[in-house]
């Protein structure tokens, strides 16, 4: 069975249609890339999957392991295994990153009927993962994303992903604002999480990231839906030719 299935999804914001019939099936263990021009609804799709308010679903459905997500609250989707790595991670003054990570881990443990994580166990877990991703200890003490560079924010997102162990992760323009070194670190972090029962949707504008996170399937997204699907070679074609062929589809 598909891990994620999006069927004929239509959505609008303030009466304006953004998604116009998205169909997407992702099998367990697969990495799909979603590429396309800016402003065509890629981020809207990721926000809707994660459960953000403010969108009206006018038709279609999103299924995780055959179960509809649409009636679920964002936190319930997260606990069911959905993870969104934000294009613009939110800064939260006054809340230490470690406090936030602990709260997120404990939310999962409570949902699983387990007790809160022991302080020592938490530190050991977080520090080990943080080290792998080049997240410095002082970043864990700092407020969530406050004063983090673009690269630090994205690394912190991947650290959260590693701690949340999702079944389906969406990386929304994780490569934006990253230099080549940061890009490698982030890609290595994502690749380390690839497994036969975990799937990814990598949203990006450029082929660059896909040299490091090699997708199984590449989709071109334009005009609120998927207009073409192919293998990794499609990403290279787009890099060479741009999106000019597809902008017409947006009209």
């Amino acid at each position: 069975m598909a891990l994620i299935e999006i069927r004929n999804l239509h959505a609008s914001v303030d009466g304006k249609d953004i998604l116009k019939g998205v169909d997407l099936v992702i099998e367990p263990g697969k990495v799909h890339a979603l590429m396309g021009p800016n402003g065509t609804g890629k981020s809207t799709l990721s926000n809707i999957i994660a459960g953000r308010d403010g969108y009206t679903i006018t038709d279609g459905d999103i299924l995780l392991n055959g179960q509809s997500l649409l009636e679920m609250e964002p936190q319930d989707r997260a606990l069911a295994g959905i993870f969104l790595s934000f294009q613009y991670p939110v800064e939260i003054p006054g809340v230490a990153t470690s406090t936030f990570l602990k709260a997120a881990i404990n939310a999962r443990r409570r949902a699983a009927g387990e007790g809160e994580i022991d302080a020592m166990e938490f530190l050991k877990l977080v520090k080990a993962k943080a080290k792998e991703l080049g997240v410095r200890d002082d970043m864990l003490k700092r407020p969530v994303n406050v004063g983090f560079s673009g690269g630090e924010k994205k690394r912190a997102e991947v650290l959260q992903m590693a701690l949340m162990t999702p079944r389906f992760a969406i990386l929304d323009e994780t490569d934006s604002g990253l230099d080549i070194d940061a890009l490698k670190v982030v890609a290595d972090g994502v690749n380390a999480l690839r497994s036969p029962d975990r799937s990814f949707l990598v949203i990006t504008h450029y082929q660059r990231l896909l040299s490091y996170i090699v997708p199984d399937v590449v989709h071109v997204f334009a005009g609120g839906r998927i207009v073409r699907t192919g293998g990794p070679e499609l990403a290279e074609e787009l890099e060479a030719k741009g999106y000019a062929d597809y902008t017409g589809a947006a009209a």
């Binding site: 609250e73 964002p74 936190q75 997260a78 606990l79 993870f83 939110v90 006054g94 709260a103 939310a107």
Partner: peptide, 26 residues
């Protein structure tokens, strides 16, 4: 910020408390 915390699995009450605490702790 509320959505961000919820997207990490926190229920709205816990998320609000954390944000209020952060606002003052800041």
């Amino acid at each position: 910020a509320l959505f961000y915390l919820q997207a990490r699995g926190l229920d709205p009450d816990t998320a609000r408390s954390l944000l209020i605490e952060g606002f003052l702790d800041d």
